[in-house]
Amino acid sequence: MSFFSRSPWILHYDGSSCNGCDIEVLACLTPLYDVERFGVVNTGNPKHADILLVTGSVNERNIEIVRNLYRQMPDPKVVVAVGACACSGGIFARAYNVQGGIDKVIPVDVYVPGCAARPESIIDGVVQGIAALELKHRMTA
């Protein structure tokens, strides 16, 4: 096991979501769930992050942002799509400005369903993301 599984740093990006999933992501950091127990840190800077956690769908305006953030993350890196909108566009999928899920723009490793996704499932998604991270590290190392 490498250090990646003990120290996954997360970058949380909110696409065009209703903020329901974002509230749940933040709930993971609260005393009730306390993901820092697993070394998870919510960094807020792509250059520091290992896991890109996206909530909400992509639209015309944020495609560029999502791409840039993903590009600026150093390898190895994984993407976790949190919630129905991030996975597929959700109930906004047919809206005039929405492109669909995150996988329309960047490769997604883990899909976390739910509207909004529960903190438990988000944590589970991150744990699966860690496994993917580990795999990618081993493949490139």
Binding site: S7, D34, R37, G39
Partner: peptide
Amino acid sequence: GRVGPPLLQPFYDVGK
């Protein structure tokens, strides 16, 4: 009011 990371967490971070 949280539990917090393991004691050796900073070393894991730097290792990573």
